[in-house]
Design a protein around this nucleic acid. Structure first.
Lengths: 232, 232
DNA sequence: CGTACGTTTGAAACTGCTCAATGCCTGTGG
DNA sequence: CCACAGGCATTGAGCAGTTTCAAACGTACG
């Protein structure tokens, strides 16, 4: 079994057999270079992808050139229809690192239909979890001050990365540029840079050389008011 | 048939019969006064509600007293588990107007299990739509300037309200206070007030006496860069 | 009539943005 | 092996946009 369903099985270990049935619908893995847009040439409209390796941004581009990163997707996460990828809605999945992923030859709906109801509701739960993550980002951007907001985001990603075996909770590889992270946090890259400096000087977290290191995990958790509950 | 499934059937008229089967799981309607918190005393953990009447805010409260409105729910919308309502996550549904709603004696998961796969995927689609709405709110708060952001939100609500038969696209009843709307837009109520004045003076939209009126629907649609695609 | 709640306005302080320049690291070609 | 270009990070200065605090106003309701 590939790492493909790592995350799904993590939450629902009892689904081993059902998940195995899905293998018949899976395309061989495909690789994208950094910067590539994912999902432009799908086998089926609405097809679902699963990330095997690499980081992916779900970004929304505005007419004036600004962009908002809506979600950051890690190995084990699904990439699914957000109202037809790349449609007029302006939402796109973009590879940050080199990305390896697999595609189902099925739309979200067909995937539900093809599988057991138990698996369907596990996927539903997965979607619900995604929704909560986005909800947190909304709270972040709307109402948390920039330093807290930044800390919160980094903590979330640390926990998510750890869950799928990338680094531990105190130190992990973080391949985004500051400007990408700024787009996720709804602020300018320059200001983010200054915020990061302050966080580093406060000995809370450092972000250097594509590595995030928490100097004092408890302190920053308190500082950010981070409750990991929404990720479980 | 109550207005209960108005919205679901709107998107999936073929599900008439299946929806009727659900009636067995539905509690009699319950009414909440303005300001009431919904979902504290559910019959089943994770139970799902459907709004029959009234407006509901999904809000997240922060430790410092600030709050972010994550979604605005209208008649026909579901209220479902956001990681166990009212848990440590701090998310709550609050009645804006007097609200009438019905509760299923089933969790989201059990609801899926109890129904046909077709209905399940219709609900899945509903959840996906919700996700897109939240995504738009995130883009709004993160990257659109306050006037555009405000216009965008009002347009979205106009369209959603119209869909379930509340007012037409040019004029509709809008029961939120400015301070609630500000919490949805991630800005201060005072600043929102000034933005509203500017919009009114530009003859784009007026918001007075709980009524929103678009003076020039096309103009404001252009101004806000509003694409209604994500609501369909 | 008075209270409560929401809206509106003013003024001052501050936060975060833009523009512009510099520094740093890496990969490439001479 | 060095020079140079490109991408990203960092810093400074000035400015515009937002927030905060405070107060007045309006309206609905007891």
């Amino acid at each position: 079994m590939h790492s493909l369903f790592k995350k799904l099985l993590l939450h629902h270990p009892e689904l081993q057999a059902e998940v195995a049935d899905l293998n018949g619908f899976v395309e061989p893995p495909r690789t994208y270079p950094p910067g590539a847009v994912i999902g432009r040439n799908r086998s089926v409209p609405g097809a679902v992808f699963v990330i095997s390796d690499g980081w992916v941004l779900a970004s929304h581009y505005l007419a004036n050139g600004a962009s908002q990163v809506v979600d950051i997707r890690l190995p084990g996460d699904f990439l699914y229809d957000q109202g037809n990828l790349g449609s007029s809605v302006g939402l796109e999945y973009v590879a940050v690192t080199e990305v390896r992923l697999r595609e189902f030859r099925l739309s979200t709906e067909a995937l539900l239909r093809a599988t057991s109801i138990r698996l369907a509701s596990a996927m539903m739960a997965e979607v619900t979890r995604d929704r909560q993550v986005i909800t947190q980002h909304l709270v972040n951007v709307g109402r948390r001050d920039p330093a807290v907001r930044t800390a919160h985001m980094l903590l979330e990603l640390a926990v998510r990365a750890e869950k799928v075996g990338l680094g531990d909770a105190h130190r992990f590889r973080f391949p985004l540029t500051q400007s990408m992270l700024a787009d996720a946090l709804g602020m300018s890259a320059i200001h983010l840079n200054r915020v990061l400096r302050k966080l580093r000087e406060s000995k809370l977290v450092s972000f250097q050389n594509s590595m995030v290191t928490f100097e004092d995990f408890d302190a920053i958790t308190r500082f950010a008011g981070f409750e990991r509950g929404y990720l479980e």
